[in-house]
Structure formats: structure tokens, C-alpha cells
Amino acid sequence: MKLEMKDQPGQLVAALKPISAVGGNIIAVIHQRETSTAAEALDVQIVLELPEGRLETLLELLREQGVSVVRIGEERLLYKCTLIMIGHLMHTDLSDTVDRIDRTGSAEVTELSLAMPAINAPSSARITIRSTTRTEMKKAIRILRGVAEQKKLLIIEPLEDA
């Protein structure tokens, strides 16, 4: 999620406190100097993770602190992980493989690139999963590993976590 506010004296500190109070996790604070505005009026963006259902409480607390939020950008799926699958992907029902991830509700397959070689030869696919949290990503990858074992697919994971 992304909060945007005007950078007036004291606003940033006032904004950070309520975030931790509602159990949020600050990922980045970005100052952006807009060409149209005066040097002292900076835009501040705060990128954060927030537990489900806490947004209203946070906005209320921010209002109490006198922080004016200009815009809220909500991106649910913050974490991204790209893997490669090799095997008989079509014969083992690729849409079912994708569906098992999507069914979690907290992770979904957002990209799929499929290379199809000769008939009956194993195919290769690149699959991108996005999830709400790191834990949900681990869960999604565990599901994919299980599916791979069942369908005799090879899963190539990235060296580093999401």
C-alpha cells in the first residue's frame, strides 16, 4: 500500500507512529521533489504493509495527528517470485496447476510464458507468482512443489527468496 502526503514540518514523524500502532510494516519512505511545487513542499510517499482491515483505523489515527493523506494506492500483492517449470505441463493440466495457487486467495499467478517444443517432448514455462506477504509466498511455493511432485514436473526456484 502507498500513502502520499505533503511534506510539511512534523508530518512525517506524525505519520509513522500510527502505522506501527496498527501493526503496519514500513517498507520505504520516498521523498519526491515535484518540479511544479516550491522546494519546501515535497511529496512524501510511504510504502507499507498493513494487516487486513486496519486501513480505516490507520486513516483515523492519521487524521487525529493532523496528517493529510493526499492519495492511497493499494497494491495487495507486494511480493513477487518467478520460477521455471519443466515437464508435461499441458498434459498435466496447466490451468489446474495455476488454479491451485490462485485458490489460496493470498497469492496468484500473474504471468505465464510457455515454450512448446515438439509434440510429446517436455515443455518449459516461466511462472510469476505475486502474494500479499512473504509467508503467503512461501506457502504458494510449497503448494507448487507439491503439485510438481504429483505431476512429475521439475520446478526451478530462484536463488533468493521473494
Binding site: 521455471i84 519443466i86 510464458s113 515454450a115 517436455p122 515443455s123 518449459s124 521439475l154 526451478i156 530462484p158
Partner: peptide, 25 residues
């Protein structure tokens, strides 16, 4: 333990598209 015997040139190309490659780690 998983070996490299099932790897395909396609898989390496799909990695290459992301400026990545595949290594046995």
C-alpha cells in the same frame, strides 16, 4: 537433491529473458 538431466534449452532461454541463467546450486 535434484539434478540437471531434465533441463531444456527453453528453460534456459526463459531465464535468459530475465537476465538470469540456471545453475546447479
Amino acid at each position: 537433491r535434484t539434478g540437471i538431466t531434465l533441463l531444456t534449452p527453453d528453460a534456459l532461454r526463459l531465464a535468459e529473458d530475465l537476465d538470469c541463467t540456471i545453475r546447479l546450486i
